[in-house]
Amino acid sequence: MTVEKDLSKSVIFPVGSKITNDFFIGDAYLDMIIPEPTASTGAAGNVTFAPGARNNWHVHEIGQTLLVTGGEGWYQEEGKVAEKLVAGDVKVIPAGVNHWHGATSNSWFVHIAIAPGSTTWNGPVDDEQYADAEAGKIVMENK
């Protein structure tokens, strides 16, 4: 099945282009809704994760807000248990918090990410860390 067919009933914004950088594991897609950051909003993008896909650990200079629009995903701060996110959830991430987010192993996950400042990318969430997060264990970034 194609991404478009799988998500045709749940997407608000286009799926966008496949992300090809080294900051994501698995298939993830991005459609920039606000491509040029403004003083009031920052940049905003619709991010679509295939099942099991996730981004690396990262920190936002000013913070980030996730508006979940479809599927089921994980949000995890370093040293804490992962939180399951579903459509309608809003996650406000404070500045300076090392975290990652992505899809559960059996669901697509779609969110709008709003980030007004810069992002510092850290190491990947490897398969063992991801499995631990899904099992409800506390995970720390490998340093």
Results as ranks from 00 to 15, higher is better:
75 Y>L: 14
64 Q>P: 03
70 G>W: 06
89 D>Q: 13
72 E>I: 02
55 N>G: 04
95 A>D: 09
94 P>S: 13
90 V>S: 10
66 L>M: 11
52 G>V: 05
85 L>V: 01
49 F>H: 13
91 K>G: 10
84 K>R: 15
71 G>T: 01
54 R>G: 07
63 G>E: 07
60 H>L: 04
77 E>R: 13
86 V>T: 14
65 T>S: 09
72 E>Y: 04
69 T>D: 05
80 K>D: 10
70 G>K: 07
55 N>D: 07
69 T>K: 09
74 W>P: 07
77 E>F: 00
69 T>Y: 02
46 N>H: 14
84 K>W: 00
48 T>R: 09
83 E>G: 03
83 E>T: 12
87 A>M: 10
43 A>G: 14
49 F>L: 09
86 V>Y: 03
76 Q>T: 03
94 P>D: 15
61 E>R: 12
50 A>W: 12
59 V>D: 05
47 V>I: 15
74 W>S: 02
62 I>A: 09
74 W>A: 07
49 F>G: 09
86 V>Q: 12
80 K>N: 13
86 V>N: 04
75 Y>I: 07
87 A>G: 10
43 A>H: 07
49 F>K: 10
84 K>Q: 12
83 E>N: 14
63 G>I: 08
63 G>K: 07
94 P>I: 00
90 V>P: 08
69 T>N: 00
74 W>H: 14
87 A>N: 08
69 T>H: 06
57 W>V: 04
72 E>T: 12
48 T>H: 13
62 I>E: 11
56 N>T: 04
66 L>W: 13
68 V>H: 10
88 G>P: 07
54 R>K: 10
58 H>A: 05
92 V>I: 15
56 N>P: 12
93 I>H: 06
64 Q>C: 05
50 A>N: 10
93 I>Q: 05
64 Q>A: 02
78 E>C: 09
44 A>V: 10
82 A>S: 01
87 A>I: 03
91 K>A: 15
77 E>C: 04
63 G>H: 11
78 E>N: 14
88 G>I: 07
68 V>G: 12
93 I>W: 09
45 G>M: 09
51 P>Q: 01
48 T>G: 06
75 Y>Q: 06
60 H>S: 06
47 V>R: 04
67 L>P: 03
89 D>F: 15
91 K>W: 11
88 G>F: 05
52 G>E: 06
49 F>I: 05
53 A>H: 08
43 A>C: 02
81 V>P: 13
54 R>V: 06
